[in-house]
Simulated scan of single mutants.
Amino acid sequence: MTEKVRGVVSMSKGAPTELVTIVLPDLGPNDVKVDIQTCGVCHTDLAYRDGGINDEYPFLLGHEAAGVVAEVGSDVTHVEVGDFVILNWRAVCGECRACKRGRPWYCFNTHNASAPMTLEDGTELTAALGIGAFADKTVVHEGQCTKVAADADPAVVGLLGCGVMAGLGAAVNTGGVTRGDSVAVIGCGGVGDAAIAGARLAGATTIIAVDRDPRKLQWATELGATHTINDSEVDDVVAEIKELTDGNGADVVIDAVGRPETYRNAFYARDLAGVVVLVGVPTPDKTLEMPLVDFFSHGGALKSSWYGDCLPERDFPMYVDLYQQGRLPLEKFVTERIGIDAIESAFHKMESGEVLRSVVVL
């Protein structure tokens, strides 16, 4: 049976978001209705609003969410009513060539809900990353729900749904950071700081944070950085990183910005056989020109990290457990808790670097 709830919608490119009534569809066999408790305000939501993803307006924004299963479709076996879940946007199919090759984090056929949510006039909404969680309730595929410890703070653990997991995974899964490694992270917003926390968790001994905002460098220090470099105060970031790593460069360098100049620095700041991980998302207009011989003369690996190369069923419960044990300070990522009517203000704070994460509490 259809149901009407509140939702934050972007109606057109660049226009302020609107809090409106949305309609949830009848559940398909594998669909799940979730009562949203919290949802982080991610830069991807702003990109949707401003046309940086596609032009399939109107968008129902929000995707870094946690909540409680309210209703399930007839064939759902993965979760039950009452389960506390974190939502994810990589519900793997198990059947595509990536899944069958044992690399499900590259799944080419991820699942979403069987029918879209709509406005009251029937206009179909495009749910951000297939979730749409700036709403009292949302409808997703059962594979987009990962059950975790029910006593975890939803405002904290819900951030694993996107940015924090992207950063943790960039360090641990994609970069393969291990005990004794040196790591440099370029860009210390939410994703970059999560990479720093992941590097610390994995046992890296030298963790270098690079940014040009002193406030972000302070946050990075609190999350595990052993050294900081203010990019606006030095002539050569690469030289600074090499000086902190005995002249060798870092074992793993993570670019959490995604610009040609930051990637170039990441490439040259790694050890001769080091790993570069690109987790910052470049815009389509960005291009990179470098001597091809430099790629030949440096060993190691150049990797891109999609969603931290995570498997939600494996990673979310593990990181929630580590947080509850006091070994992973996820709570430090929550800068403020806001109401559902404060999304635009949160966007402004995010753009100006005032917050790591604003979290909507419903």
Score class of each variant (00 low, 15 high):
Gly163Thr: 10
Lys13Gly: 05
Arg337Leu: 14
Thr174Gly: 03
Gly52Ser: 04
Tyr323Gly: 00
Thr335Phe: 01
Arg314Leu: 08
Met117Glu: 13
Val275Ala: 02
Pro25Trp: 12
Ala256Phe: 05
Arg90Ile: 10
Gly187Cys: 08
Glu240Lys: 14
Arg327Ile: 06
Met290Ile: 14
Ala115Thr: 14
Ala266Cys: 05
Asn173Phe: 00
Val359Met: 03
Lys147Met: 12
Glu120Ser: 13
Ser232Asn: 11
Thr123Lys: 08
Gly176Pro: 06
Val41Phe: 09
Gly102Thr: 02
Thr38Ser: 15
Asp83Leu: 04
Gly62Arg: 07
Val191Trp: 04
Arg314Tyr: 00
Gly187Ala: 08
Gly175Pro: 01
Lys137His: 15
Thr110Asn: 14
Leu322Ser: 14
Gly180Asn: 09
Ala209Glu: 02
Ile36Met: 11
Glu344Trp: 01
Pro282Leu: 05
Arg90Glu: 06
Met117Leu: 11
Phe333His: 02
Leu24Ala: 01
Gly82Trp: 04
Pro284Asp: 02
Gly52Arg: 10
Pro116Ala: 14
Met1Arg: 13
Arg327Pro: 07
Gly300Leu: 07
Asp121Gln: 13
Val72Leu: 11
Ile36Lys: 07
Ser12Gln: 02
Val237Trp: 03
Thr335Asp: 06
Glu351Ile: 01
Thr138Arg: 07
Ser345Glu: 09
Ala346Phe: 01
Ala70Pro: 04
Gly158Cys: 06
Ala170Val: 02
Ile196His: 05
Ala170Asn: 02
Val139Thr: 09
Ser182Arg: 07
Arg179Thr: 13
Ile53Leu: 09
Pro214Arg: 15
Ser345His: 04
Val92Thr: 11
Val172Ile: 15
Ala250Gly: 05
Phe59Gln: 12
Arg90Phe: 05
